[in-house]
Simulated scan of single mutants.
Amino acid sequence: MNKQWIADVSLLAVTFVWGATFVVVQNAISFLEPLSFNAVRFWLAGLFLLLWLLLFYRSLLTQWSSSLLRAGGWMGLWLFSGYAFQTIGLLYTTSSKTAFITGLSVVLVPLFSFLFLKQKPTANAVFGALIATAGLYFLTMNGGEWSMNRGDVFVFFCAISFAMHIIVTGKYSSRYPTLLLTVIQIFTVAIMCSVFAFLFEDGTQMWNVAVLRQQEVWTALMITSLLATALAFLIQTKFQKYTTAARVALIFAMEPVFAAITAYIWAGERLSPAGIIGCIGILSGMILPEFRFSLSFGKRLSTKRHLTR
């Protein structure tokens, strides 16, 4: 079976899990503050992966190196930034808006590829970014008025972070063992979340049994730590080497779609007509860079997929 097809299906499954957890996380952070929640989430995920490594893949420890540590730490830094900004943003904006603004990372990937990897974006990639930006404007309108609140700003920085995470994952995933690289980046996020939780929140709530016993909290922690963190990033690190960053970004564009569906089913969230237009604009901006349109003399107009990077 084609490895790229397996990679695409696996990454789509990961995207579904991420999209479905927006509402779950938003409910949980009403009891446990965002950075504290992420600290517990990533510690649990990291410990699970470490136990898995020691029990079944201990021989991989012989491949430990300082360059591996730097690569995993760099991936973890961008991952921490993305989740920190996203979870804080959920305090001030809706799950649907968070999902669609986060999706702008798909448009940012070609731009950052040009800035940091010197890969020139196509003309329709630039056009797609403009369409997505217009879509963002409509999505954040409220009754015809501009309403970019602080939650939306936090989530936009989250989009930047996740775009960088896609790029660095693509860079390092083929160089180092998947499990080791994943363990390092997960523990990096756990440590950084813990430090910042004590600096900006009441970090002692991370081990407050009364808080952790809340159904909304422990349910969210179990789902996000095992499925949306340990398994999800293990799969991304494993399979991104078999496809391109642009293709991964296109697959991740389905995350806000899944999030909007689950927000509709579980939380009863509705988008205004302008918001729907904005969502269509952002999705169009995400997908457009993945296609190339060409007209050949004497031949009919043909459209084919064009995967950059």
Results as ranks from 00 to 15, higher is better:
Gln185Asn: 10
Gly76Val: 15
Ala132Asn: 07
Ala45Tyr: 05
Thr21Asp: 11
Phe112Ile: 12
Thr15Val: 12
Gln215Glu: 10
Leu51Val: 15
Ala129Gln: 08
Gln119His: 12
Lys238Leu: 13
Ile287Thr: 14
Gly275Asn: 07
Phe127Pro: 00
Leu77Gln: 04
Ala129His: 08
Val109Ala: 09
Leu32Cys: 11
Ile184Gln: 04
Gln185Met: 12
Thr244Met: 02
Trp266Ile: 09
His306Lys: 04
Ser294Ala: 07
Thr122Asp: 09
Thr178Cys: 06
Ile88Met: 12
Ala267Cys: 06
Ile160Leu: 13
Val17Tyr: 07
Phe154Arg: 03
Ser173Ala: 14
Asp152Arg: 05
Glu201Asp: 13
Leu250Cys: 08
Leu250Lys: 04
Leu221Pro: 05
Gly82Cys: 01
Met75Phe: 07
Pro121Ser: 12
Asn2Trp: 01
Lys171Tyr: 10
Ile276Asp: 00
Gly46Pro: 01
Pro289Leu: 05
Arg70Thr: 12
Ile276Lys: 10
Arg58Asp: 13
Glu201Tyr: 14
Ala210Pro: 06
Leu221Ser: 10
Gly46Glu: 00
Asp8Gly: 02
Ile167Asn: 10
Arg305Asn: 07
Glu269Ala: 07
Phe252Ala: 08
Val195Gly: 08
Phe252Arg: 04
Thr182Lys: 01
Ala28Gly: 07
Ser65His: 12
Gln4Leu: 03
Gly275Ser: 04
Leu301Val: 10
Leu271Thr: 04
Ala245Cys: 09
Met206Val: 15
Met141Asp: 02
Leu32Gly: 11
Arg247Asp: 07
Ser10Asp: 11
Lys120Gly: 05
Phe37Gln: 02
Met254Thr: 05
Ala99Val: 08
Trp43Thr: 09
Gly72Pro: 13
Thr224Met: 11
Val24Ala: 14
Gly76Thr: 15
Phe157Ser: 01
Glu216His: 12
Ile131Pro: 00
Ile235Tyr: 06
Val107Tyr: 02
Val155Ile: 14
Asn124Gln: 12
Leu111Thr: 14
Phe85His: 04
Ser10Thr: 11
Ala197Pro: 08
Ala39Ser: 15
Asp8Tyr: 08
Thr224Glu: 05
Ala20Lys: 09
Ile186Ala: 01
Gly82Val: 00
Gly103Ile: 10
Met141Ser: 13
Phe48Lys: 00
Gly135Asp: 06
Gln214Cys: 06
Ile287Asp: 00
Tyr176Asn: 09
Gln215Ala: 14
Arg309Leu: 11
Gly151Gln: 06
Val107Ala: 14
Val24Phe: 15
Ala246Gln: 14
Ser113Asp: 12
Gly89His: 11
Ala260Val: 13
Leu108Thr: 11
Val211Tyr: 07
Gly170Lys: 03
Leu307Gln: 09
Val40Asn: 03
Phe100Ile: 05
His165Cys: 04
Thr303Trp: 13
Leu221Arg: 03
Phe48Met: 11
Leu47Ser: 09
Val211Thr: 14
Ser147Met: 08
Ser113Cys: 15
Gly285Tyr: 03
Gly143Pro: 08
Arg175Ile: 13
Tyr172Cys: 04
Gly73Arg: 07
Ser81Tyr: 03
Thr224Pro: 06
Thr262Val: 15
Leu227Gln: 07
Met286Val: 12
